[in-house]
Structure formats: structure tokens, C-alpha cells
């Protein structure tokens, strides 16, 4: 029987954190703790003496973990970012999914693999959710701007909604611009002239 590992998940978002913890539970009997990103990250991680730390590769506080690679005292265990020398595809998959793992010196790769595999699956889901959310948000913003531009044209020229929309579209096509960009330019100009 292998002993349980202490795993720290650095994640600010509560819901995301819970999803990662659930996934890790399925990968084995480990002690999993969640801590938030941000202030004093290196110190807060070191205090827990973890075997493994999982963090979003693009977390703004991630560079602080690099401090842990420099063990300050003889009793401290140096940590390094996990790179599987026998299996680069795992490291690559982790990077693509946007998760990175920091491990204590001496921890064997085969103990880390199942945990990292589980985390990678979860982070892929996050990535999809994030790009979907961003796309929806952008589409919504663009529709709002186009609506405002339409309204401006309707008032200024005394035309109907359909005609205003057709005018915007035609101008955008003639100028080789995106409809949303043209609408934004019109709205900005109108705001300036107020």
C-alpha cells in the first residue's frame, strides 16, 4: 500500500476548485487542500509541506512558486515543476490543458501520473467553458453596440430600424470593416459630440 499524498490545489474560483478536488478524489486516496491564488502564495504553500501542487499555468501568481525551487534551509524540501522525462507527452498534454504541477524532489513519476491525468481532463473542460463564455460575452457586447448604432442612425436620419441596419451593413462592407467595429466607431463619435 502506498501512503497518501498531500496535494494543494491553487485556485481562486470556488466552483472550479471543487470540480478539481472531485476529480482528484477519483484518482486515489489523497489529502487534497485548496488555497487561493494571490498574496504570499509561496509562503502559504510551503507551510502546508505538500508533495504536489497543482496550479493554473496562466495564474498571475504562479511565478512565486519558483521561489520554492530554492530550499532555504537544510530541512526544507526543494520543489520543482514536474516534467516527466520518460513521457514528454504527459507534460505536453498538461501544458496544453493549462495546468502545471510542482512536485517535491524525489517523488516518483508513476505516483504523479494518475493525479495529473485526472487534472488534465478537468482543465480541458475549464478551457472549453472559458472560451464559450468569452465568445458568448463578446457576441452579446457586439449586439448591444450594433443596437445603439442603429438607434443613433434612426434618430439622426429619421429612418426605420431595418433601413438603419442595412445602411450600417452596406457601409461596413464598402469600407471592408466588421459591422461591430463600424458600430463602435459611430457610437464613440456620437458620445464625443454630445
Amino acid at each position: 500500500m502506498t501512503t497518501a499524498l498531500t496535494i494543494i490545489v491553487v485556485e481562486q474560483d470556488r466552483e472550479r476548485a471543487l470540480m478539481i478536488v472531485d476529480a482528484l478524489r477519483e484518482a486515489g486516496e489523497h489529502r487534497v487542500q485548496v488555497i487561493g491564488s494571490g498574496a504570499g502564495l509561496a509562503r502559504r504553500v510551503a507551510e502546508q509541506c505538500p508533495d504536489l501542487v497543482l496550479i493554473d499555468a496562466g495564474d498571475p501568481s504562479r511565478d512565486a512558486l519558483e521561489e520554492l525551487t530554492l530550499a532555504a534551509g537544510p530541512l526544507e524540501r526543494p520543489v520543482a515543476m514536474f516534467v516527466d522525462r520518460a513521457d514528454q507527452s504527459l507534460t505536453r498534454a498538461a501544458i496544453e490543458a493549462g495546468v502545471s504541477a510542482y512536485v517535491v524532489d524525489g517523488l516518483k513519476s508513476d505516483r504523479i501520473r494518475p493525479i495529473l491525468d485526472a487534472a488534465i481532463v478537468r482543465f480541458h473542460v475549464f478551457q472549453r467553458m472559458r472560451s464559450e463564455l468569452a465568445a458568448t460575452k463578446a457576441a452579446l457586447e457586439e449586439r448591444k453596440i450594433v443596437d445603439r448604432a442603429k438607434g443613433l442612425l434612426m434618430r439622426a436620419k429619421g429612418i426605420g430600424e431595418e433601413e438603419a441596419y442595412a445602411l450600417l451593413r452596406k457601409t461596413a462592407m464598402d469600407q471592408g470593416k466588421r459591422l461591430a467595429d463600424l458600430a463602435q466607431a459611430l457610437v464613440t463619435a456620437a458620445d464625443l459630440l454630445k
Partner: peptide, 16 residues
């Protein structure tokens, strides 16, 4: 664009 130096280093190390 990378979000931090660690991420940039990984991108270079792994050929991204």
C-alpha cells in the same frame, strides 16, 4: 502572449 515567466519558459522548453 504568456501570463507569467514560468509559462513562457514552459512554452519554450516544450517547443510551443
Amino acid at each position: 502572449r504568456a501570463a507569467n515567466w514560468s509559462q513562457l519558459r514552459d512554452m519554450l522548453d516544450l517547443g510551443a
